[in-house]
Amino acid sequence: MSATQLATPPPSVLRMAEGGIHFDGVRAVDGVTLEVRSGEVLGLIGPNGSGKTSTLNLLSGMLRATSGSIHLDDHDLTRLSMRRRTRFGVVRTFQSGRVFGRLTIAENVEAAALGGGLRRREARQLTADILAELGLEDVAHQQADALTAGRIRITAIARALASRPRFLLLDEPAAGQNESEAIALITAIREFAQRRGCGVLLVEHDMSVVMGTCDRLHVLDSGRTVTEGEPALVRRDPKVIEIYFGKRHDHDAER
Results as ranks from 00 to 15, higher is better:
residue 203 V to L: 09
residue 201 L to V: 15
residue 202 L to V: 08
residue 143 Q to V: 11
residue 249 H to T: 04
residue 190 R to A: 14
residue 166 R to C: 05
residue 152 I to L: 01
residue 214 C to V: 11
residue 172 E to I: 00
residue 219 V to S: 15
residue 203 V to E: 09
residue 252 D to K: 05
residue 144 A to E: 09
residue 231 P to W: 06
residue 147 L to T: 02
residue 143 Q to H: 14
residue 140 A to R: 08
residue 157 I to D: 01
residue 185 L to D: 07
residue 155 T to S: 15
residue 165 P to V: 04
residue 143 Q to I: 13
residue 208 S to R: 11
residue 153 R to E: 01
residue 150 G to D: 13
residue 145 D to E: 12
residue 225 T to K: 10
residue 138 D to M: 15
residue 217 L to V: 07
residue 191 E to Q: 04
residue 139 V to L: 09
residue 223 G to N: 08
residue 194 Q to W: 12
residue 226 V to A: 03
residue 250 D to F: 12
residue 209 V to P: 11
residue 210 V to K: 12
residue 163 S to N: 01
residue 229 G to I: 12
residue 192 F to N: 06
residue 239 K to F: 01
residue 178 N to K: 01
residue 183 I to Q: 13
residue 222 S to T: 10
residue 245 F to V: 08
residue 247 K to H: 10
residue 197 G to L: 13
residue 169 L to A: 03
residue 144 A to M: 10
residue 149 A to T: 11
residue 223 G to S: 09
residue 184 A to G: 06
residue 212 G to K: 15
residue 158 A to Q: 00
residue 214 C to Q: 11
residue 185 L to Q: 04
residue 235 R to G: 10
residue 197 G to Y: 14
residue 231 P to I: 00
residue 173 P to H: 03
residue 229 G to C: 00
residue 188 A to N: 08
residue 232 A to I: 08
residue 227 T to S: 11
residue 234 V to W: 04
residue 230 E to T: 12
residue 141 H to G: 07
residue 245 F to C: 07
residue 173 P to K: 09
residue 142 Q to N: 11
residue 163 S to G: 10
residue 163 S to D: 08
residue 200 V to G: 04
residue 163 S to P: 10
residue 167 F to S: 11
residue 196 R to F: 15
residue 223 G to K: 10
residue 243 I to F: 02
residue 198 C to L: 05
residue 209 V to N: 06
residue 252 D to C: 00
residue 234 V to C: 08
residue 205 H to K: 12
residue 218 H to P: 15
residue 194 Q to S: 13
residue 246 G to D: 06
residue 217 L to D: 08
residue 144 A to C: 11
residue 200 V to A: 00
residue 246 G to I: 02
residue 152 I to E: 04
residue 175 A to C: 07
residue 199 G to T: 07
residue 202 L to M: 10
